[in-house]
Amino acid sequence: MSFGKLSASTLAIAAVSATAAVAQSRENVQIAGSSTVLPYANIVAEAFGENFDYPTPVVESGGSSAGLRRFCEGIGENTIDIANASRAIRPSEQEACAEAGVTDIIEVRIGYDGIVFASDINGPDFAFTPAQWYNALAEQVIRDGELVDNPVANWSEVDASLPDQEILALIPGTNHGTREVFEENVILAGCEESGAYEQLVELNGGDEDMAEAQCMTVRTDEAVVEIQGDYTETLNRLQADPNAIGVFGLAFYEQNTNALKVATMSGVTPSTETIASGEYPVSRPLYFYIKGAHIPVIPGLKDFARFFVSDPIAGPNGPLAQYGLVSDPELAQVQQTVEKEDSMEMPN
């Protein structure tokens, strides 16, 4: 084999690959996004592949923000069709989408996910309120009318009713959609509940945004560990340090009830029922976003979306609910949205 032949064959291979790539059109639905939605998307993709003639969709993880960023890269077969998100799309993201030509976005709410607080199975029981979490985790708290660095180090210092255990909270990192919900539904709610919010507004001379930001700033000392990875990482940390209290999705807890003990929030035990009824306060909707422009091009895209929100899948007795998703009480409305391909309105 000579050098000339070698380079010629290399070029030939490169040429063949390039032409083949152009000639080929994608047959599978391509999905990326939230790791919270991932198991549900996997379950639906698997059932979809089993029951339809279309190939099983390819589902990637990577987080809500990364998924939406890729979703907004543009239109075409080498961009994704569906972005999973554990939070609603932000106006800024929608604008980025529109700039890249992705104007036709269909928002599909698949159900609700509870956020639970769990500790080691052998540890003491915890019964929390949002106010206690605020007092334990806020970076600065008000003592005698002045803002001071949070001095508490033990749950019993936060509230005498809590067990005598060092504060060590494993909370999701800022790359997770869960973090936003945690800050708003637990920390900020606790801030308001404990009355600290009003005092902060007063201290800041009526600046509500400032007070809100101060409420939601979580301390960064050794009492808090931000988990960048998945819930499995939180679980591993928790098993290594039995003092820790971790933030998990309800579905993850349901799969690991033999290792975790769940805490009540404001006296309510988290379960699909209490979340559906709204009694359990910390939950958030889960979404996926479809690129409208891809529906006529990618085979099976609409069928997949329709299948995802159909009653046997996303309904209260479907496999998703079995895995821990709180099914959407307004599922019929969501099904209508998918059927009519109703796009979202652009933010002004």
Binding site: L38, E46, V58, E60, S61
Partner: peptide, 24 residues
């Protein structure tokens, strides 16, 4: 592989080469 979309849930076997090189 993380960035090129291969860290994914894939259930379909790729076809025989050379087409299979382009399947997920």
């Amino acid at each position: 592989l993380l960035l090129i979309g291969m860290v994914a849930f894939v259930r379909e076997y790729p076809d025989a080469p050379p087409e299979g090189f382009f399947d997920p």
